[in-house]
Amino acid sequence: MSDLDSDIDEVSDQVKEVYAYYGLAMYWAQCLEQSIFQHLLFFDHFPQAIKAYKDPQQWANEFDEYESREMKQTMGKLIRRLREAGQPTKEIEAALEEALRVRNWLAHGYFSDRAIQFTVSSGRQEMLIELKSLYGVMKSCAALIDAVTQPVIEKMGLTEEMMKDIEKQLVREYYPGESNA
């Protein structure tokens, strides 16, 4: 292998790593959206649905409608719905504001803002450090919301053990023969 091939491989690996950490940051942005949705589900939808419960089919249909409607919303609109539900503390509110700013920048401007840095090794290294921090913003914010939601979920009877069993069941359903244990 020539020196040029070796240089290209090193650049290629670093570029892949930048893309991987960008993907991780966006993954956690989507996890945060799911955390917001689950919070709304347990603090907004279920309390109303329980009062109006008539039969399992109606329950399933209303759940599907709620999920379909809410999951079409932007993160900003989901955060607004969370505020309307009256749940966020000042700490969560600040974390959500920062997470929304970061998510929007990642989705709409990150690579154009970092175009020059992306062309050199030291710039890509800076991007890696930055992206690790940015995915941490998303992950921390999701954890704050989950810490409020989880006790309510358990109070409604959905334990962590039950969640693990559901996850295993879904893996068996979608990937027969594989295990996530």
Rank of each mutant, 00 (worst) to 15 (best):
K132T: 11
N104S: 04
A115S: 12
M127L: 08
A107T: 02
E98H: 06
M138C: 02
S133H: 15
K132L: 05
L131H: 06
I116R: 14
M138K: 06
K132F: 01
S121R: 15
R124Q: 11
S133A: 14
V102G: 00
M138A: 03
K139L: 14
S122N: 09
S133K: 15
S112K: 15
Q117Y: 11
S121E: 10
M138E: 08
V120H: 15
L131D: 04
K132R: 15
L128A: 09
E130W: 02
A99K: 01
V120A: 13
L131P: 04
L100P: 12
E130M: 12
N104H: 00
E98L: 11
S140C: 06
S122R: 10
E126I: 09
K132H: 10
E126V: 06
S133M: 00
L128V: 07
M127S: 10
A94M: 14
L100A: 11
A95Y: 01
W105E: 03
R101V: 01
Q125G: 10
R101C: 04
L100R: 12
E126T: 08
M138S: 07
A142F: 13
Y110R: 06
A107R: 11
S112G: 07
S133F: 07
Y135M: 10
E93C: 02
V137G: 00
T119P: 07
Y110F: 15
V120L: 10
A94E: 15
R101I: 10
L96K: 04
I129S: 04
